[in-house]
Design a protein around this nucleic acid. Structure first.
Lengths: 300, 300
DNA sequence: AGAGGTTACGGGCAGCGTAAGGATC
DNA sequence: GATCCTTACGCTGCCCGTAACCTCT
């Protein structure tokens, strides 16, 4: 008889395009996935996947039946939800976050989420927006807090918070009168997010557009390291001040203005429009609430 | 995690109004049902049944959730059906039939059903219409072939076939000129269906309305026995001649007319309007087809 | 050669049936 | 007391994980 476990396996193998990936997603081994799919195929009397080639691909019939499988999963989660006991809602949410969020309200979100849904567990990936977006599209993540806006129509997004970027230095660093001209910074290392991010590209292009020699840009994939390096006087940095409120308050770092307009960092919660996983939507709503209450947010 | 087996158990326990009945329906023991329901209640964090009183009754929340459970079962059978491999459609159909059907086309229906759906098994109850109707309403049967029309709005029905009733006797029996007046039959046993059936009541009332002494009616719950008794010359009988075509052909029985209008026996397939069990509908359609091709049918 | 899926096999655990124990009418 | 559900317990069978094998690119 057709079983929920087989159905769930079917859906994930289809979404992720392979048994191996599904096995990883469902915290089991690949032979287990093989067995479950074989079981389902026997129950239905239909071949669901074409395994002859490199990637296991859905057969036409499999594609037809996928809709039913997804509806069944949706129905099940709805049922559990309608039952109303949040403590009974189980599951794993794979959450991707931009590092700025880690350094602001993420832990508070986790706390509230855990209080509301004690049986839901989280897997958190910290990465930059481009990678998060890709992971969302390939279903490696269920939801991500990243820079918006999100052009992909397959992803639903809701705004969370908006933080200004600013120039940061140690007080000891001698700088010309504000706003500091770009030309005064060609020698000074500028530390910020990694290469393939908005601020990095913005600053690099600004220098080249002004005919100046390339900036000494230190892209760094770890925000904490950026802060650390700035504290160590290696250079100035471009980061959202919201993550260094402590250092600003006790005077270890200070802000300054420069002759570049830095756009705000507008964060959104984005998740794929899957028929199931109402849970992602709930997490997005909770995140919006937490973010709105966090000091430093600039509501649009 | 919520499982299909629990859900199915939930639905049947709710429909049948008890764990014991559900156990019988699902071919298992009562403790197994208890365990499955307990499991589901734990998964949902909700009490589904109130067991304090005589009968296990749905709690309000249980009633809310029943809809989801039924939808899930529906979805599952639809999925198997859409898969298209009829050989994979499993299940047990509890079929109630009026005895006339047993003696006409039932075996042919079973043959065709088995050829189409080899994995579907049947449980057949032979009974009179009133009992079949009650069993349908209490979900003891999934479908029944019985006398129509069906007034209950909870039961869906489709016409199958219509067979005339007739008076039957052995050729040796001496009878007045046709149509035989009722008065000629007050001494002669009239054998027919059992007490609580249409023909029995019709004949009895006819006699009393004509001011005659009560007919010597032999109600019999077994049609074969009626035929047997008629063959043995115990009396005349009122049955559908369609079930004795052999005896009529070889001259062991003959028909005659009497001064009573006998209505046709119009059979229908009736089944409760459950969201699942599309299978019942399929059986009804197949039965209609088989019945239409059976000789002796009087299409309306 | 490596990634991905299948087959083979042994062990652990969920779920079943039996049997005995309450609760309600 | 009869009916219905629950609890206790031993067992079976299924499903999983390990490991070796096969097949494509």
């Amino acid at each position: 008889m057709v079983d929920f476990k087989s159905v769930e396996t079917f859906v994930w193998a289809a979404r992720l395009g392979g048994f191996r990936a599904a096995a990883h997603r469902l915290n089991t081994t690949q032979p287990a996935i093989s067995a479950r799919i074989a079981q389902l195929e026997q129950d239905l009397g239909v071949r669901l996947f074409d395994r002859d080639h490199r990637k296991a691909a859905l057969t036409p019939k499999g594609a037809d039946l996928l809709g039913y499988a997804e509806k069944m999963l949706t129905l099940r989660s709805e049922m559990v939800e309608v039952a109303g006991e949040k403590a009974c809602i189980r599951g794993v949410i794979r959450l991707g976050v931009a590092e700025t969020i880690v350094h602001t309200w993420l832990s508070q979100l986790i706390e509230r989420l855990h209080a509301l849904y004690p049986a839901v567990s989280l897997e958190i990936d910290v990465d930059v927006t481009v990678n998060l977006r890709r992971s969302l599209l390939s279903h490696d993540l269920d939801i991500a807090f990243m820079l918006g806006p999100v052009p992909e129509p397959k992803l639903k997004s809701r705004p969370l918070c908006s933080y200004p970027l600013a120039w940061v230095a140690i007080p000891q660093l001698e700088l010309p009168a504000e706003p500091v001209p770009l030309s005064a910074m060609v020698e000074c290392p500028i530390i910020t997010f990694s290469r393939n991010t908005q601020p990095y590209i913005l600053i690099r292009d600004h220098f080249s557009r002004q005919g100046l020699p390339p900036a000494r840009l230190f892209g760094n994939s770890s925000l904490s390291t950026v802060v650390r390096m700035t504290l160590d006087g290696i250079g100035v940095s471009v980061i959202p001040p919201v993550i260094i409120s402590q250092e600003l308050a006790d005077g270890r770092l200070r802000l300054f203005r420069a002759a570049i307009d830095l756009p705000d960092h507008a964060f959104v919660a984005a998740y794929p429009l899957k028929p199931d996983s109402h849970l992602a939507q709930t997490v997005a709503a909770l995140a919006a609430d937490v973010a709105a209450q966090w000091p430093g947010n600039t509501p649009n």
